[in-house]
């Protein structure tokens, strides 16, 4: 494990659009942490937003204390975004100059954009502003990674793989194997593990390249 000092509480936000598997991802992460003896809390904001709205989960990890389920503004240490514009929306409220952000650059267009009344920001704009707000910004093509295995719903798992490769997060791939094995039938488990590794490796490569 890393020798890095992990802040207490460690605040992680997982955000995206309804239906992208946000809740599953945060539940897996927090369960893996609880199994390792941490105190974890998760706050999910989805409401009626499974119908295409924004969703976010706050995951908080502590060695000792129970925290409220919501992270105060600008106190996120890590942001995992399943969608570029949603990542930026959340970063505006919760990021600070030390925040590390991982996001999938594949856009999911809101109704207003599809109809042509609103414009979707260019990926460059999103990235520039994220870099302006956060300490580190990493792009992980999670949906493409998932699609490459024919499992388009598993982008969330790819991103959890990527998150796990970061030194700040006190979980290992093996911890996920355990909690995933408790939750998924064998076939789905194997598919998810494959995608998890792809995400993990993608993040590792990025970290290596930027050494």
């Amino acid at each position: 494990m890393s020798e890095k000092v992990i802040p207490d509480p460690l605040n992680i936000i997982i955000c995206g659009v309804g239906g992208q598997g946000n809740i599953v991802a945060s539940e897996l992460l927090a369960s893996a942490l609880v199994e390792k003896g941490f105190r974890a809390t998760v706050g999910e904001t989805y409401g009626a937003s499974q119908r295409g709205g924004s969703v976010m989960s706050h995951v908080r990890i502590s060695k000792t204390l129970e925290y409220g389920v919501l992270i105060p503004q600008h106190k996120a240490h890590l942001i995992v975004g399943f969608e570029p514009m949603e990542t930026l929306r959340i970063a505006r409220d919760y990021a600070n100059k030390e925040t590390t952000t991982i996001f999938d650059p594949r856009p999911n267009y809101p109704l207003g954009v599809l109809i042509g009344e609103a414009a979707y920001p260019s990926l460059q704009e999103v990235e520039d502003e994220l870099c302006d707000r956060c300490g580190f910004v990493w792009k992980i093509p999670a949906t493409d990674l998932a699609l490459s295995t024919g499992n388009f719903r598993a982008a969330n798992i790819a991103l959890m793989g990527a998150l796990t490769a970061l030194p700040q997060v006190p979980v290992e791939a093996a911890d996920y194997d355990r909690v995933m094995a408790q939750r998924f039938p064998e076939k789905v488990l194997a598919q998810n593990q494959e995608v998890f590794v792809l995400g993990y490796e993608a993040m590792r490569e990025l970290l290596e390249m930027n050494r």
Partner: peptide
């Protein structure tokens, strides 16, 4: 925090 730069639009709910 820095001022918003890119245009972020609302994500209206839909069917």
């Amino acid at each position: 925090a820095p001022a918003p730069a890119a245009g972020v639009t609302a994500r209206e709910l839909t069917f």
